[in-house]
């Protein structure tokens, strides 16, 4: 996977953006990639998490909740292989600016109509372009109950409506909150845990998409 900026964004709070962003960054860090997180959320969730004992395994967390967070991302992407941006759970100029420079957007959504409705506003922005760009994006189901009918229902409806959804999803597990007590993610505490496997599956899908995008760009410029 080439140097890339990955933004985790949705205008709905509590959808699991910070959890997803931290888990992915830790996953790539454990895989030997240089990964960094930009915490563009004024709630500073990941900055606070990194201040705890395990400090997200040493993944650097840069706090920048200003409208210039995208500039910080552009500066860091030369220094790190992957820069993951965690955005606020509401519409903000900082989020829109980050979407304008990102290589890939992950849109977490809980399988609930409240979350889906608000997420569609985010997808509307992505589909109609930000700063003249239409970033590649995928929805990812978060906090799902394993094999629940509602999760399957929403997954199939999203696909049917033309919104791409990752095959992998984050199921709701207490281990996320438990790990956070140490300033860690489940994959940092136990790389073979079910949660770690789910995170790895999401990360692999994202990596594959980013790689295929890189190939397309190279082919286009050749």
């Amino acid at each position: 996977m080439a140097h890339s900026i990955i933004t985790v964004a949705t205008m709905k709070g509590g959808s699991g953006k910070s959890t997803l962003a931290s888990c992915l960054a830790v996953h790539w860090h454990l895989k030997g990639r240089r990964a960094a997180i930009i915490d563009a959320d004024p709630q500073s969730t990941l900055v606070r998490l990194a201040a705890r004992d395990k400090a997200l395994g040493g993944v650097p967390v840069i706090e920048d909740a200003t409208d210039d967070a995208f500039k910080t991302a552009q500066r860091l992407v030369g220094e790190y292989d992957t820069v993951v941006i965690d955005t606020p759970g509401f519409r903000s100029q900082a989020t829109l600016a980050c979407l304008g420079v990102t290589d890939f957007v992950l849109v977490p959504v809980k399988p609930s109509p409240f979350d889906v409705d608000r997420m569609l506003d985010t997808l509307n922005v992505l589909i109609n372009g930000v700063s003249g760009r239409r970033p590649v994006f995928r929805c990812v189901l978060t906090q799902t109950t394993r094999d629940s009918v509602i999760a399957k229902h929403i997954r199939s409806e999203l696909a049917e409506a033309g919104f791409p959804v990752l095959d992998s999803e984050m199921t709701n597990r207490v281990v996320y909150a438990e790990a956070a007590l140490w300033g860690a993610t489940p994959n940092l505490l136990d790389r073979k845990s079910p949660a770690a496997r789910e995170i790895a599956a999401i990360a692999d899908e994202v990596s594959q998409i980013c790689e295929s995008m890189t190939h397309v760009k190279r082919a286009a410029s050749a």
């Binding site: 109509p113 889906v116 409705d117 569609l120 997808l123 509307n124 589909i127 109609n128 009918v149 509602i150 399957k152 229902h153 929403i154 409806e157 999203l158 049917e160 409506a161 033309g162 919104f163």
Partner: peptide
């Protein structure tokens, strides 16, 4: 086997968003 029947959760499609913009 899914026997529950839910109403629609996704009320807009990607095509509708593109058309509304264009």
């Amino acid at each position: 086997m899914n026997k529950k029947r839910f109403p629609k959760a996704v009320l807009r499609t990607a095509d509708e968003m593109r058309e509304a913009s264009a």
